[in-house]
Structures are given as structure tokens and as C-alpha cells.
């Protein structure tokens, strides 16, 4: 083979339809994973501020065990490990796509729980006292006074988590989810154009995360 640079971006662009197919799966997993992750995180975050010992214990165990293990391990544990049990006992298995969404949701949920807890606890105690002194119930005080203020403080760290989770979907390639990373690896395996394809893929992830940043900036400005 001739020495020197031998790059062929034209050929790489021919693989674009297959990459876009993977991109769609990436976005699908990110959107559903974060949607469910937000619901889980909200519930777990509230439980972490709860005086109820059982709620606090369960949510703390959840947050600590998810934060304390790598996402990659969580993915293979669910897709290969848990699936093995499911097949043996119930005779069905999670598809790689469903497993991927669950992993992202459960993983993001733990981090979002801490964001929710931190934001709620950062609201000045005087706000709750003012609400309660007017005769509002605990729940009313939370709903009308504490939570709206906490939500505003959640937005920057939530945006950060959205970006992290979106990038984390690339790890799901290991459990054969046909997302952007997986598809790019498949192309490289056939065409041997690693530099071109992975440059392209990196640019696509960057565009996605920049889009999230932009949306968040607009939301933040809206909420003033």
C-alpha cells in the first residue's frame, strides 16, 4: 500500500443513511430513557427528602447502587444477566432496545433524584414557614411554593444530565442496540474507514448535545 494520507469522506457520506438509522434509535432511547428517568428521579428525589424511613431507605439504596456501578456493567447485567433469569423462569427476554431504554432510565433516574433532592433542600426554610403560617397544608406549600422554585434550580443540572445520558447511549452498542455507535462500528468493520466514520459520528453527537444546550438556554431565559 502507498504511504501517506488516504482519506475518503465521500465514501463515508455514502454510509450516512445507515448512520441516520442508528441516530434515530439513539434519539429514541435518549428521549424515552430520559422521560422515564425524570419520572423515576422525581419520585426517588422526593423519597430522599421524605421523613418516612422506608421511603428514604429504598431511595437511598437505589441512588447509591446505581451511582456506584458503571453504566456498562448495568447494561450487560440487565441484558445478559437478568435476561438469562427471565428466560429460565418466565420464558421471555427483554429486547436490546427495551433493555437499553430501561438502563438509561434507571441510570439517569438516580442522578436526577439527587438533582431533585438538592434543589428542594436548597429552598430557604423560611419559604415553607411562610406558607404554613398562612394556613396552607404541607402539600399545598410544596406544590405552590417550594416545588416551582426548586424546578427552576433543577434546570441547569438537568440539562447537564440530559447531555450525559445522551452520550451514554453509545455504551449500549455493547448489548447490540442498533444505535449510532453500533452502526458506525458495523460500517468501519466493512469499509475500514475508521477515521472518517468516527469523525462523522463524533460530529453528530456534538450537534445533538449542542442542540440540547441551546434548548436549555432558551428555557432558562424563559423562566428568567
Amino acid at each position: 500500500m502507498e504511504a501517506g494520507l488516504n482519506l475518503d469522506f465521500i465514501k463515508a457520506f455514502e454510509s450516512l443513511p445507515y448512520l441516520i438509522q442508528g441516530l434515530k434509535t439513539t434519539v429514541l432511547i435518549a428521549v424515552f430513557g430520559l422521560l422515564f428517568g425524570f419520572v423515576i428521579g422525581l419520585a426517588a428525589g422526593l423519597a430522599r427528602t421524605s421523613k418516612n424511613k422506608a421511603l428514604y431507605a429504598v431511595s437511598t439504596v437505589y441512588v447509591e447502587s446505581v451511582r456506584g456501578t458503571p453504566l456498562l456493567v448495568q447494561a450487560v447485567w440487565l441484558y445478559f444477566g437478568v435476561n438469562q433469569l427471565l428466560v429460565q423462569t418466565l420464558g421471555f427476554r427483554l429486547s436490546s432496545l427495551n433493555a437499553g431504554i430501561i438502563v438509561i432510565a434507571v441510570n439517569a433516574g438516580a442522578y436526577i433524584a439527587e438533582i431533585v433532592r438538592g434543589s428542594i433542600q436548597s429552598i430557604d426554610k423560611g419559604q415553607e414557614e411562610a406558607g404554613r403560617s398562612l394556613g396552607l397544608t404541607r402539600i399545598q406549600t410544596f406544590a405552590y411554593i417550594i416545588f416551582p422554585q426548586a424546578l427552576k434550580r433543577m434546570i441547569p443540572p438537568l440539562g447537564n444530565q440530559f447531555i450525559i445520558s445522551l452520550k451514554d447511549t453509545s455504551l449500549l452498542s455493547i448489548i447490540s442496540v442498533g444505535e449510532l455507535m453500533r452502526h458506525s462500528q458495523e460500517i468501519v468493520a466493512v469499509d475500514f474507514n475508521a477515521f472518517e466514520i468516527y469523525t462523522l459520528v463524533a460530529a453528530v453527537y456534538l450537534l445533538l448535545t449542542l442542540a440540547i444546550s441551546l434548548v436549555l438556554r432558551l428555557v432558562e431565559r424563559r423562566l428568567g
Binding site: D124, G126, Q127, E129, A130, G131, S133, L134, I145, P148, Q149, K152
Partner: peptide
């Protein structure tokens, strides 16, 4: 029973 606080505690939002 109304209460007025040292730090006002108005709802900033």
C-alpha cells in the same frame, strides 16, 4: 394567626 418574619419570606416566584 398571621405571622410576619424578620426575613420577609415573600415568595420570589
Amino acid at each position: 394567626v398571621g405571622m410576619v418574619f424578620q426575613r420577609f419570606n415573600l415568595f420570589p416566584h
